[in-house]
Simulated assay, not measured.
Amino acid sequence: MSILWVAIGFALLVAGGEGVVRGAASLARKLSISPLIIGLTVVAFGTSSPELGVSILAGLQGKDELAIANVVGSNIFNVLVAIGVPAAITSIKTSMSLLSRELPILFTVTIVATALARIGNQLNRPEAAVLCLGLISFISYSYWAARAEPDQIVEEYDEGIGPETPTGRSLFMVAGGIVLLMLGARLVVLGASTIAAALGVSQTIIGLTVVATGTSLPELMTSTVAAIKGEGDIAIGNALGSNIFNLLGILGIAGLIHPLQVAPDLARFDLPWMVLTTLLLFPLVMTNKQISRLEGTVMILLYVGYALWLIVRAFA
């Protein structure tokens, strides 16, 4: 039953996130807010809303291990699987903007978030505030950088938002989406905690595997579809952007609401592994300015090896 609750919870999280994104984006349009701003804030936050809901609720319930492991596991999954799978299907070409902008920002953010989390093995409110300020800076920089791009890049944000809907319907979508997110997060946290107790493993392990995989499925689906369509930058940029929002937005907001304790194993093993997997992207994308099918397959195998190691660690 716990597995069923988790599965239903994931479905509600995805549906809720979709409702919040569409409703909020439509309302923002009615307020004459730039499609570029909507794309960089509402849509970007919406795709990370499953992780946000789970981490905030887990933190409020005192399940700090689950709250942080969800973010760390999601970031590792996004790099090795959400990029690895589409690359294994068809080689993904990259652009100079990705090499010079998004990837260095992600690596810097990963280093800073890891350092803050390892100081005293906790993420307190002042440290969380630093991450939130980083998020505001990232959004501001992204807006400035996107305005300097060709018109067709800016138009992509407008196309991705979707058509306007009546105000009443938009409000209903936002309210309904928030309710679904809350219900979904509650089911995932409850089910994951029960599974951890039944298996006799830590919530960290469940958060790094089951919960992280489930909340990252939207990124995997989006990146795979984009790669098949030949939109390599979108495929990689989706995963990188999600990781930046996870570290700055989710850890920042969750830590502001409730200071989070970092499990020793997470600080010792998984946070450094998250840094290493992010660093791995540099040589991959710089080789012929693409991630080949062979490299994508290796990335998937690395994740399989990491998952097996987590299983061994859980029952050791």
Rank of each mutant, 00 (worst) to 15 (best):
A307F: 15
T222Q: 07
A117Q: 09
S97G: 15
A239F: 04
L276G: 13
A129G: 12
A24I: 03
T297C: 04
I92F: 01
N70R: 12
G214S: 08
I178Q: 01
I253K: 05
V79L: 06
M173S: 14
A88L: 10
L187A: 07
F138P: 03
I291V: 13
G162S: 10
G19W: 03
E149C: 12
I205E: 04
L98T: 09
I56L: 15
L99I: 10
V174K: 07
P35K: 02
L308S: 14
S223E: 03
A198C: 00
I8C: 09
G249A: 15
M286A: 13
I178P: 06
E149R: 15
S74H: 09
A44N: 08
N288W: 07
I253M: 11
L190Q: 11
E127T: 06
T114D: 05
F172L: 15
L12C: 13
A197F: 10
V188W: 01
G184W: 01
M221W: 06
L135C: 08
S137R: 03
T108Q: 08
V20L: 12
W5S: 13
E127P: 12
G53Q: 01
V6F: 12
V312Q: 14
I76Y: 03
I136M: 11
L240S: 06
K63C: 00
V304A: 14
S100D: 12
K63D: 13
L308M: 13
A82I: 05
A7T: 10
V304K: 01
V109M: 11
I37S: 09
G200A: 00
V54E: 04
